[in-house]
Amino acid sequence: MSNPHFTPAGNGKVYANTTKGARELAKDAKVGMVLYKVNRHALVAGQFEEYTYSPVHCTHWSRLCGVWMFSPVPHIKGSLTHERLVCGIYLGTTPPEGLRDLAGPEPDCRDEGAYGLKRGELFGGRLDPAEIDYMERLAKQAVAERHERGKRLGHVTEDENGKVTTKRGWW
């Protein structure tokens, strides 16, 4: 699967995923510089979009490594080198167009899907007493199965009065 091409918003500079791009970034970097990198997410985990961006801040010049160091948090010394940042999908001085900031609010998707409620609508389905009883039985059954499994493994014990104690941790 190929990576899509992201365009910067405004007149931003994009650093290429090459050795030349790393050299350009090393030349242009200075403490306090903010760059924007694109993050790719697996859609199986319930993420709404495949790509988001997040800012990284140039925090200091590493005398030990001889490279610029970047961090997602501006006031904490970073551990990302400029060479590592250039290896990503997109790295630029302005955020890419059409992407959401990872730390920003997620999109409102209540209107999406086959059974999504429109804004201001209430749930129109009925919860019968029989259906509520069925769900309560399932919950009790799950708790009982967990309790029995804990007894088998020795994590749960009962004394002669019926008091249940749970062993936590390895001690």
Rank of each mutant, 00 (worst) to 15 (best):
L91I: 13
P95V: 12
E106V: 15
N161Y: 06
L153P: 00
K118A: 13
C65D: 10
V164N: 06
S62C: 14
N3F: 15
S2F: 11
A16S: 13
V38A: 14
A130T: 11
R84T: 15
K118V: 07
W170F: 10
L122Q: 04
G116M: 12
G104E: 01
Y115G: 03
R137M: 09
G46Q: 11
D111A: 12
Y115Q: 06
L117Q: 09
P8D: 00
Y53K: 04
A42S: 12
Y36S: 06
K20N: 03
G32S: 07
L127S: 09
A144Q: 07
H5C: 13
V38H: 11
R119L: 05
D111L: 08
C58Q: 01
P72Q: 13
T93I: 06
A144V: 10
G10R: 04
K27F: 11
R110G: 15
G78N: 01
G169D: 10
C65S: 12
I76M: 06
H41A: 04
Y51P: 08
L117P: 01
P105H: 05
R63K: 03
G12V: 11
G78Y: 05
A22K: 02
T19C: 05
W171Q: 04
P8M: 02
Y36W: 15
A16Q: 14
G125M: 07
A29P: 06
E97W: 01
G169H: 04
F123Q: 02
E24M: 10
M69H: 00
L91N: 02
G10P: 14
G113Q: 06
Y51E: 07
R137S: 12
V67Y: 05
A142D: 13
A42W: 07
A22H: 02
R119N: 01
K77M: 09
G92M: 10
V164C: 12
I132A: 15
K20S: 02
T165Y: 03
V67N: 01
H57C: 07
A144M: 11
D133C: 11
T165R: 01
T7S: 14
E50Q: 15
R84E: 06
G92S: 08
L80E: 05
K163R: 05
L138S: 11
E112I: 14
A22C: 14
G116K: 10
K27P: 01
V14R: 00
K30A: 15
A103N: 09
K77G: 06
H60W: 04
L117W: 11
Y134Q: 07
V14E: 02
H41N: 03
Y53L: 01
V143L: 11
K140N: 12
K140Y: 10
T93S: 05
S71A: 01
Y51S: 09
W170P: 05
K20E: 13
A103W: 06
A144G: 00
G169V: 03
E83S: 06
R168L: 14
K167F: 04
R23W: 03
A139N: 02
S71Q: 00
T81R: 01
L127R: 02
G98W: 06
T81H: 02
A22L: 09
L122I: 12
K13L: 08
T19S: 03
P74H: 07
G113L: 05
V31I: 15
H75N: 10
G169S: 03
G124C: 14
H75F: 10
D128P: 07
V73N: 10
V164L: 13
L80M: 13
K151Q: 09
D133K: 14
V86Y: 03
K118F: 08
F70N: 05
K140M: 07
